[in-house]
């Protein structure tokens, strides 16, 4: 099929960019969205134009590297699917596709479709972990974990850190990303001792970079792992407790 593409080009964080129009022909429906961009880049390279820069690595929807705004939808039209897992059969011949980078003050554009998501790491550095120096762990089966706890912890832990939730949120809030990590660790017995200090540190750091959640629910729909906003409610609950209890004692609650 033949497509008309309008893609955001921007040399570097300093310069200001613009949407540029391109055409690609004979795209097979079997192609993935990124393979379509590969094909375009081959064309550009042949024509002497610098190829379009976009992030990607695993192309299996697990590394969280990829992610662009496709016709106003993060990761494109297919729900619960990362850009690299989106296939061209979801589009039809003659379509116009507009491709933009994530937009949020906290995510500066580095080049073309690539943004800087490092604030996510800063949030995790603030407390998104369980303190357990190597070698100090007890036997793995010493503390049984209720199956359901393990399962919902896994639901939350499935986050791939792609940033689509922020991109989708009208307030550029990172609530879903943060809530997912807080829930993953907070649901497990191993995560209890630091449960409240963790949520406090992570949220306070998050709020230095991102907007606030007003419960639009867009993030859940944009999330390639369909992580539920129920985790955001849990986050709010834990955060209040964290502020209320003296978090020094909180671990014992």
């Amino acid at each position: 099929m033949n497509l008309k593409l309008r893609i955001w080009r921007q040399q570097n964080s300093g310069s200001n960019g613009e949407l540029v129009e391109y055409r690609v022909s004979d795209i097979s429906p079997e192609m993935s969205f990124l393979e379509m961009l590969d094909t375009l880049n081959e064309q550009l390279n042949a024509a002497g134009t610098e190829p379009i820069a976009f992030d990607h690595d695993c192309r299996e929807g697990i590394c969280g590297m990829c992610g662009v705004m496709i016709n106003g939808q993060p990761h494109g039209p297919q729900l619960g699917t990362a850009t690299c897992q989106l296939h061209m059969r979801k589009f039809s011949d003659g379509d116009t596709i507009v491709i933009e980078p994530w937009r949020a003050r906290a995510f500066g554009v580095i080049k073309d479709l690539i943004v800087d998501r490092s604030p996510f790491d800063t949030i995790v550095e603030a407390g998104g972990f369980i303190t357990v120096p190597t070698g100090s762990a007890p036997d793995a089966n010493l503390i049984p974990v209720p199956r359901d706890a393990a399962e919902s912890a896994m639901d939350a832990a499935a986050c791939i850190g792609c940033g689509a939730c922020v991109a989708a949120c009208p307030n550029s809030a990172a609530q879903l990303f943060t809530a997912a990590k807080v829930a993953h660790l907070g649901l497990l017995p191993q995560g209890q001792p630091e449960r409240y200090s963790r949520v406090e540190a992570m949220v306070d750091t998050m709020e230095e970079f991102f907007g606030s959640c007003t419960n639009h629910g867009e993030c859940e729909k944009a999330c390639p792992k369909s992580i539920s906003i129920d985790f955001i409610a849990q986050l709010n609950r834990d955060y209040l407790k964290a502020k209320m209890l003296n978090s020094k004692l909180a671990g014992q609650r």
């Binding site: 949407l19 106003g72 933009e100 937009r103 906290a106 995510f107 554009v109 307030n171 550029s172």
Partner: peptide, 9 residues
């Protein structure tokens, strides 16, 4: 906290 540039689409 929103983006400097808003979405074009």
């Amino acid at each position: 906290k929103g983006g400097d540039v808003s979405y074009q689409t």
